[in-house]
Structure formats: C-alpha cells, structure tokens
Design a protein around this nucleic acid. Structure first.
Lengths: 234, 234
DNA sequence: TGCATATTATTTGTCGACAACAATTATGCA
DNA sequence: TGCATAATTGTTGTCGACAAATAATATGCA
C-alpha cells in the first residue's frame, strides 16, 4: 500500500482542479470576500487546495484575462480594483446591453426560454419579499442574463455577463450590511418586460429595458451620492 | 564555462516568452496562416520557440480565453472555427459597436485623438489607392479602433476590438487572392465621419456610422452570396 | 474473418525543484 | 550617523520529468 493507499485522497479528477480554483476564486472576488487590492499568493492557494502551483497559475491567468485580477510582472498579483473614476462608462455599457439583449430576446426567444426567465423572476420576487439584498443582486443578474441568452447573440451575452459581474461587485460594496432593499417596483417592471418579450414586441422591449436600466443606474448613483465604505484601494 | 557560456543564448527576458508566443500565434490565427481547425501541438511549439511547455500553455490559455482556440480536455487543441451559421449575430454586434463608439468619440474625443485618427485614415486611403486589399482590412480596422479609443469606454473598445479581430479573420477568407477591392466610397465616408466627430455632433456621428457599418456588412454579405473558399472546418 | 479486449503510443495535466527578479534588511565605510 | 552597497528573503517564471487519459494499434478468441 504505497500509492494505492485509499486514504491518500488524491481523488480529484484530472483537470477539475483548475475549474475548482477558478470558480471559487471568482466567486470570492465578486462577493468581495476578496476585496479589491487583496494580494493573491500562489503558494498559499496551492497549499489551500492541496495541489501544485501549475493549475493555480492557470486559473489566475484566466481570471486576469477577464480583468478580475491584476498581475505585476515578477511581483505580486492582486484582486483588480474598481474603477470609480470611470463609473459612467460602466453605466453607459450596462444600459445599452440591457436594451439590446432585451430587444433581441423579444425577437429570437423560444418557448422554453420563457420558462427559464420566469423561474428566475420568481427567485427575484422571493428575494425581494424576503428583503434579502444579496439574493436580490444575484437573482436579478440571473434574470437578465437569462433574457440575454434568449437573444442568442454570444457577443452581447459575453459583454453583458461581464458587466453583470462587475455590477455584482459594485453593489456588494453597498449592500453587504443589508441596510437597504431594492424596491418592489423592479419586480413589476420585470413582469412587464416578460410580457413584451412573450409578445415579441421589440420596440416595447427596448423601451421598457431602457427605463428599467436607468432606474437601476439611478439607484446605484443614489447610493454613491449618499456615500459608502469607499476605503477601498483604487 | 558551464552555464555562463555566452553562446548558450538563453538571452530572452524572463516573462517575454509568453507574450512572444501569444502575439505571434494570435497574428497567425487572425491572418489565417493557421486556418480554423488547425491542430495546436504544445511540444511542437515548445521546440519551435526553444522553451518549455509551461509558457506555451499560458499563452494558449489566454488565447482560449479570447475564443481564438478551442480546447478539448485531455485531447487536442485547435484554432477556433468561424461560426458561419450565426454570422448575423456578428453583424448585429459589429454595427452596434460602430455606432456607439463613433457616437462616443464625437462626445469625448480630445484634440490629440483626431491626429491619430487622421493618420490611420491616411493609411487607409493609401491602401485603397494601392488596391492592397489586405492593407485595407488592417488599416480600416485600425482607423475604427482609434475612433473607439477616443470614445474612452473600455467595455465598448474591448468588445469592438474583438469584433474587428474576428472580422479580420472573416475578410481574409475572401480577400487573400486580392481579387476585389473595397471602394473609394469608404474613404469618403471616413472623411465625413472624422468631420462630424471633430464637430462633436453625436447624432450625425451615429447616423454616418450606421450607414457606413451597413455598407460594410452588405459588402461582406455580397461576398458570401457570391461564394468563396468555404472548404474550411465548421 | 469479425469483433472484443489488451497493448502501445501520443498528448495533455500535474508535480517538485530551481533560477531570476524585486523588495527588504543588513553591512561597511565616510 | 548617513548613505551606498551587499546579502537576504520572498515571490514569480521556467524547466524537465512523470502520471493520467485518450486514440491508435495489436492480439486473441469465436
């Protein structure tokens, strides 16, 4: 019983390690468990996941490719900062992607897409009812991501999901203390959006998505104006 | 003289290897030197660049993150195919990004941006005059990328540059034999676009970009209809 | 011969170790 | 003491080798 020791627990499928590290690190970054500026140490992660540095580095390269971590050559690597100075570019892109993905969903969705969208909407309504801010953020993102998927344009869904991720990070900054809640109004707007998508009314979808997106942007900007825990590395 | 042998030529800066492989492989993919479906062999590349597989793999991971190569787990990795079936999604995204980047350039550009844009336009005009189709593709992309940079929205420039890359690959399919040329009309339209950007006329910028983009899409679709060397792995 | 199984070969995924680079601390000299 | 230089430390980048997984080939049995 040397290397066939059943208790040596190297029982991890070949290639699953990278995905595991990637997924978990990504979640920790987006949930601000690892706030912007946090140092990422390869050997520390290697010990934590009980694997060599090679798969760790591959996961980090992928995260760097998505802009979630920044790498200083030959030096440290850390969680990417949030660019508060250019927040308006984020809002511009977010509103436009809300519009175009909703419009395309009205145009190209199939019957089964509506099932998925309605399921996510139910989750969102439940989160609002429970006044669970963190759940609202997650379920709202999932709802709109599902709409984007129904629009069937990989270029748009790619950018949109990236924006939703960044939005998740920004919102967590302010909602981690559960001190506020997104209004019931968003639930109603979601219902209206589902209706116009189902009716394949592209123009109405665009219009409602615009209003909805600008509501959300306004909501975020209000939080900014009120001020928050901005003691985070820029 | 063991490892300090000056002729052992490991003279390559620590960390430059990945970038070198990434850049060169990326160019070869976009120029169709490596056509879609081409197998990518790690050890072959390692021998070619005289380095270990580790930096090669890092470059490949990054290329995979941008969708330029596809990786079958535990099996081969190859140059990503061009999705002809969903070409309309590419056109939709391209037109929209043409519009929004040009509009934002009219809004946010600085004086020095126009210098760069005009320089690229001169390159494009020269390529048209010389009837150099490949140079037209490259300079046209550089021209519009410069406009997007002037718009100063990293989310949009990111997607737009990705679309321009994909467009480079698509156009190379048809223009490699220099059998056609983009019309002089595009040069004139570029001049008009520069003018409205300089005048900070967002609406006109949007309008002209729309017309221009749809011209280009129509041009590409005409090439498709006429048929071409489509004996490429789907 | 035809097919299932076993063997080999090829390629990818992972590992442990070493070297290079940068920051930090220690040392020496004025 | 003050500062330039040298050792030290910690982290990243690269390497060569091994192990796992799949595909290709060979073997054996009916």
């Amino acid at each position: 019983m040397t290397d066939t020791d059943p208790n040596s627990t190297p029982e991890r499928k070949r290639g699953s390690g990278v995905k595991m590290v990637y997924d978990l690190l990504r979640d920790e970054i987006l949930d601000l468990v690892l706030p912007p500026g946090s140092p990422i140490d390869e050997v520390q992660l290697a010990e934590r996941f009980k694997m060599s540095r090679t798969p760790i580095r591959e996961a980090l390269v992928r995260l760097a490719g998505e802009g979630l971590i920044d790498t200083l050559p030959n030096r440290s690597t850390m969680v990417a900062s949030i660019d508060f100075l250019n927040m308006h570019t984020f809002f511009d892109a977010l509103v436009l992607m809300y519009r175009v993905t909703t419009r395309l969903a009205a145009q190209y969705h199939r019957a089964e897409d509506l099932q998925v969208i309605r399921a996510h909407q139910a989750d969102f309504a439940a989160a609002v009812a429970a006044q669970d801010a963190l759940a609202m953020i997650a379920t709202n993102a999932a709802f709109h991501s599902a709409i984007a998927e129904a629009g069937r344009n990989a270029y748009f869904t790619g950018l949109f999901n990236r924006l939703l991720d960044e939005g998740r990070r920004i919102l967590r900054l302010y909602y981690q203390s559960y001190e506020d809640r997104l209004p019931q109004r968003f639930v109603d707007e979601h219902e209206d959006i589902i209706a116009v998508i189902a009716a394949r009314d592209s123009e109405a979808a665009d219009r409602l998505a615009t209003i909805h997106a600008e509501q959300i942007v306004q909501q975020i900007q209000k939080l900014f104006a009120r001020g928050g825990k901005l003691d985070i590395a820029l």
